[in-house]
Design a protein around this nucleic acid. Structure first.
Length: 274
DNA sequence: GCATTACCCTGAAAGC
DNA sequence: TGCTTTCAGGGTAATG
């Protein structure tokens, strides 16, 4: 499941691979993803140049010229592949192939079809509803203890559910929230408004550390994730709680537990997270 | 505003 | 072995 570090890894590789290229042709499978791909998608992309590529939350954002924003969200099982010489064939789960004028191509595959492909003809990301509703990026300068304290103090929700709320903090998913709470020694079911200043500071540090390390490792791969060049990530060796139910904690004599919050699993150590 | 539930979808794992 | 059932999860929408 691609979260911020996986999407950042892909964005960095695509920046080298397709910046400056012009879209020549667009193939679409016609199957709906999270939402149906708009009928105008191919037409808007064609003949536009990829001016910049960046990441916002879990979105890949392609800034086009003439102005338009092309978005890819990978959902649960979305993957992108860069093919230097249009050898991309349509597989069972290929939903789009964007071919560039130099013959290279970008393929989007997504077995579960929870992802998103969209394009918006606007001048600024403010006009892109998928992006303007996103909260603060946890790697941005403004993500600090003062800001997070303001957010946490105003709600009685579980800290786990708040950290997953993309309208508050954009980019965290289940893996890195579980890991960050472990490093900050905070139980996932703790109420936001009852966290101490010290715990909030610890949480901010933990989120930054966990994300930066995962980016250095090129993301976490269980089965699905590879970057656009097919390389898997290496961050799984750094995981302390995620998917480790029943195994020994690496920090105390306890055993990792799992708890269900909403419809998501939270992994934590009852011995060192309170 | 927030919690809960359901839904979208497929592949993997578990159960029979 | 082979079939059926269950589960996983990000985002969104409906409901309470």
């Amino acid at each position: 499941m691609p979260e911020l570090p996986e999407v950042e890894t892909i964005a960095r590789k695509l920046r080298r691979a397709i910046s400056g290229k012009t879209v020549a042709a667009v193939y679409l499978s016609g199957l709906p993803l999270r939402r149906p791909v708009a009928a105008s998608f191919a037409e808007i992309l064609r003949n536009r140049r990829v001016a910049r590529i960046h990441r916002r939350g879990k979105y890949l954002v392609f800034e086009l010229q003439p102005p338009a924003f092309w978005l890819i969200h990978l959902g649960m099982s979305g993957r992108v592949f860069f093919w230097p010489r249009a050898t991309a064939g349509v597989t069972r789960h290929t939903h789009a192939i964007i071919t560039f004028s130099d013959g290279s191509a970008l393929e989007y595959r997504d077995p579960r079809r929870f992802g998103l492909l969209a394009v918006r003809q606007v001048q600024h990301t403010r006009g892109v509803p998928e992006l303007s509703s996103l909260g603060k990026d946890p790697l941005s300068r403004g993500f600090n203890s003062d800001w997070l304290q303001g957010v946490l103090r105003s709600t009685r929700r579980d800290v786990k559910s708040l950290l997953l709320d993309q309208t508050k903090i954009a980019g965290l998913g289940n893996i890195y929230v579980c890991e960050a709470l472990f490093h900050a020694r905070i139980h996932p079911a703790r109420r936001c408004d009852r966290l101490s200043r010290q715990e909030i500071e610890s949480l901010v540090r933990a989120i930054g550390r966990v994300l930066r390390r995962a980016i250095r490792s090129h993301g976490t791969t269980f089965s699905d994730f590879t970057a656009s060049d097919g390389e898997p990530g290496g961050n799984q060796r750094h995981l302390r709680v995620f998917l480790r139910e029943g195994l020994r904690c690496r920090r105390c004599p306890g055993v990792i537990s799992r708890l269900r919050q909403g419809n998501r699993s939270s992994y934590y150590c009852p011995g060192c997270q309170h």
